[in-house]
Structures are given as structure tokens and as C-alpha cells.
Nucleic acid binder design. Sequence first.
RNA 1: GGAGGGGUGGCCGAGUGGUUUAAGGCGCCUGUCUUGAAAACAGGUUUACCGGCGACGGUAACGCAGGUUCGAAUCCUGUCCCCUCCGCCA
Length: 420
Amino acid sequence: MLSIEQIINEPEIVRQKLVDRGEDPPIEEMIELDARRRALVHEGDELRAKRNEVSRGIGQSGGKPSPEQIAEMRSVGDRIKVIETEQEEIQQELHDLLIVLPNLPKDTVPVGPDEDSNVIVREGPPPGERDFDVEPNWDFADRTGIFDLAAGAKMSGARFYVLKGKGAALQRALSDWMLDVHTREHGYIEIAPPFMVRSETMTASGNLPKFADELFHDEEDDLWLIPTSEVALNYLHSGEIIEPGALPLKYVAHTPCFRRERTAAGRDTRGIKRVHQFEKVEMFQFVDPDQSGGVLDGMVDDAIDLCERLGLPWRLLALATGDISFQSAQTYDLEVWSPGIEEWLEVSSLSNCTDFQARRSNTRFRPEEGAGTGFVHSLNGSGLALPRMVIAILENYQQADGTVSIPEVLRPYTGFDSIG
RNA sequence: GGAGGGGUGGCCGAGUGGUUUAAGGCGCCUGUCUUGAAAACAGGUUUACCGGCGACGGUAACGCAGGUUCGAAUCCUGUCCCCUCCGCCA
């Protein structure tokens, strides 16, 4: 959520940044609503002050109000009720306008309407040359039986799949290894959150109210399946004031992610690249607002580190204003090359959400003892998305004889050296 | 799923319609005393919003949301959460 103070103080900057994202924000309307809200708050406060004063007097003089007092206070009470109702309506109106506005992109974000304006900012070593054709992961899977799309479709429908045998073990090895690197070397605390959350939680992360279509929802208990553990982690300190010195808070979680993929209905229908349920290791940090820029770079390094240790060809993209996610002020996508399908696969999206999610979840901090409170900054990034890492390993580690050798770092976790 | 109990400040805990402007205690901060500390004593100790250049003044919040009332921590309704017992169950 954007702050109304900022909208009032620098309306043209806010407008331009939202226009860069393809929005047409009702700036004047919001300013006008807030002015009316303030006037009503003021009038209501004064009436309540009067009521409090008279009530105190009645209490002090024995507790029996005169008929005149009752009549007068009844009309004051009626007026307060009218003002409160009007104030609530206006606040709701303003809230409804604010809650659907995305975060403001940072000045350094490339301006452009869509992904064509994304910029490659860092690259790992180039993909190696091979003297044989790499088999696409789905063909390899059919041949070896390590994942089964038909079985997934049979039990759950399109875009579900079943991992089997060494396929399941490879994914488990990857997630265990990633968690170990993040917790033992990168300084993250492991969290195992619920996979279902309330509407408030989903709203705080920015997924509701605008993106309900992309989510699975249980009507009976009004619970939402998380599309990423970011949603749960963002709510971990909701309503709290984090004490001086406690930041940064670095969390990592390994959860399934549930996505309806409605807007991407026709895209990536083959294989396990885009599915309704997948697993992901997610990094999440709450930080001092002064630190968030540098922390994002550090989080990017944490994600790249995994690709490097696995020896996968990678590149890093700075997403354009029209391509960053709703809650983000700045996003990098980390992609790895997969030589069988000949595609760059997005295995991590890393975002600085500044105070956007903290406002929605009411997560504050105290910079130092005795100081006032402020909203924290939140950052998230995959570290990393598992099905796509499985694809990348199956294709990058494929040998001329049609087998896949397991990356050295994963062998202690898999207990086997090759598949196929 | 059934029955019962409960949610009050950083913590414990009193408070069943009006001097509650939330008692009392603990913790924490400041001061007096002391070589220093402790003890004792005194004062202070939330968050958000509105008005004001400011000193400051006002309003709200007793899980949350409604309602009754001139007036609600207190009464009513709903809801969320916690605890105990029963049932079921990985």
C-alpha cells in the first residue's frame, strides 16, 4: 500500500511512477477524499471531547443527568454517529483506491511497458558446447520414468505431475541442499509455515484483492493456498514493533506453491515448467529501510551462489517498470540456460518491496531505544524454484550416453551419482 | 463435532454502567541519597490519528466487528484466538 502522505506531498512523482507501470492513478480523487476524511475526523473528535466532558460532569455530580442534558447529549450522539458513518464510507472509498495500486518503482528500474524492456545486468560463464543433441527433459523423463505427467493429470487434472524414484529424490536433494546452504552459510533462519492462509494475510502480501483469479481458494473455511511462501513469511511479524537491533530478520522456507495459472492458460503447457503445484525454497528478509537496496544485491548473490555451485549457466535481468510484480519496487530475475529445450528458465525472482507489504501487514520497527516507529522494508527471492532446477540439471548434466550425472554438491544428498 | 472457561498496558493482575483520567504489583528509565552499587523515596514509562510553526491541546484503542445507552473495559450479538474435558483422528 502506498502512503497517502506521499501522494499528498509529491503527487506528480507518484503519478509518473505509476504511469510507468501502466497505471492511471486517481491522484486528485484520493487527495480530495483524504481532505474530507481529515475534516470529519476533526469534527468527530471535537464532539466526542464535548460528550466526554459532560459525562465526566454527570459522574462527578452523582450520576443523574438532567432531562436537558440527556436531550442535548442525545443530539450530540446522533451527530457523532452520522459523522462516523460518513467517515467510514470515505475511508473505505480511499482504502479501495489505495489497495489496488502497485508499489512505486525505484528510479533505477528500466522504464518500459513489458518484458522486452528488461535488461541483462550480469551473466555467468556462457553455456558450454556439446557434440551431441541434448534430449528435452520430458523425453528423458518418459524414457526413465522419473516424472509422470499422465499420472498427475489422471489424479488431479492438467498441469499436475508426479515425480517418481530418482526424480523425486533429486528434487528432495535439491531442496535439502539449498536449505542447508542458506541456513548454514547465508545466515537465514528456516521457517515451516502453513500452506493455507487467511484473506488478510493474502491481502498484506499484495496478492489480494487484485489477483484472486490466480489463487486456489477454499470456500468453506475461507482459506487461500499460498502461491509462494512469501505470503506467509510477510505476515510473520504482522502487528509487531520490532525492537532496536533485531533487524535484519532473514528467513528461508521450503513450501509447495499453488497457482491457478489462469492468465498464462496457453503458455508452457508441456512438461513441468509451469504447473499448478510446485515446490520452492524462498528467501525473505525484513530490514531497516536504509539497507534494503544493498540487501537485495546480497540476496541476488545468495541465489546466484547456488547456480554457481551447481555449475549452471546463468544470467540476471533487471525487470522493467511494466514487468515487475505488483508489490515490488525493484525486481531481478535469475535465469538458467537449459540446452535441451533451448530456453532460459526463470528460477528466481528477487524483489525489494520497500515498505509496501509492511504497510499492509502493519510490520513496524524501532530504529533505536526511545525513537518513534517506522515501517520495515521487506524483500523476497526464490532460492530456488525446484521443478525448473530439476529441468536444468537433467539437461545441463546430460551425457552423450543419455544418462544424467548428478552434480557433485548434490551427491551426498541423493546417494546416487547418475540417472538413466 | 460436543461441553465448559477465558482474552485488560512490556509482563502479572484488579475492575459487572458514570470522580477509570484503567487500581495494585513486576520490569524498565530518570532523579534524590551513596565513593560506587543495592535498598528506600520521588517522578516517568504505549500506539495511532486530528489540530498547531511550536510549547501543547484533543480523539481513539481493554482480542476484533457490530448493537443498546445521555454515557460501555463493564450489558447484548457475531466473530477470531487460547485453555480444560469428551468424541474422532495422522
